Simulated scan of single mutants.
Amino acid sequence: MRVQDAICEGHGECHRAHPRLFPLDEAGHTAVPDGTVVPKGMEEAAQLGIDVCPAQALAVEPMRQGR
């Protein structure tokens, strides 16, 4: 997952969509590290969290060879 911390506005929509996949820090911003690999079987939940982000701070990035 691509996470752009500088763009996150702390709306928390991703967290509401799936709290385990999208934890928040104490300020209410996403605490998901950039480059996090979405667990197998959680792709739909991750996409939902990404889709509901009003700031568009999250994206799915294809896995690169060797990762």
Rank of each mutant, 00 (worst) to 15 (best):
R67Q: 02
V3P: 11
H11I: 01
E44R: 11
V60Y: 07
H15F: 00
G10V: 13
P19N: 12
L48V: 10
R2P: 11
D5V: 09
H18V: 09
C53K: 02
A59T: 01
R64W: 02
V32L: 02
G66Q: 05
V3G: 07
V38H: 01
K40I: 04
T30N: 06
R64H: 01
G28E: 09
C53S: 09
P33I: 10
H15R: 15
C8K: 10
G35Y: 06
H18T: 00
D5C: 12
L48T: 09
H29Q: 03
L48G: 08
F22Q: 09
L48K: 02
P62I: 10
D34P: 11
P33L: 00
A59W: 07
C8A: 15
A31Y: 07
V60N: 13
D34G: 03
H11F: 14
G49S: 05
R20F: 15
L21K: 04
A17S: 02
V32M: 05
G49E: 05
I7M: 12
C8S: 09
R67I: 15
E13D: 14
A17G: 06
E9S: 13
G35A: 05
C8F: 07
H15Y: 05
T36V: 01
E9R: 08
L24G: 08
T30I: 06
D51K: 14
P39A: 14
M63R: 01
I7D: 03
T30D: 02
A6E: 10
F22D: 08
D5H: 10
P54Y: 08
R64A: 01
I7L: 11
G10M: 03
E13M: 08
V52K: 05
P62M: 11
L21H: 06
Q4G: 08
P54W: 03
E13S: 01
G12W: 00
A46K: 01
P39H: 02
E43I: 04
G28D: 05
G41S: 09
P33H: 03
I50T: 04
R16V: 00
A46D: 09
E9V: 15
P33M: 03
P39C: 12
H29C: 00
V38D: 00
F22Y: 07
R20P: 02
A55P: 11
G12A: 06
I7V: 06
F22M: 03
G49Q: 09
E61R: 11
E43R: 01
D5R: 13
V38T: 08
A45T: 00
V3Q: 13
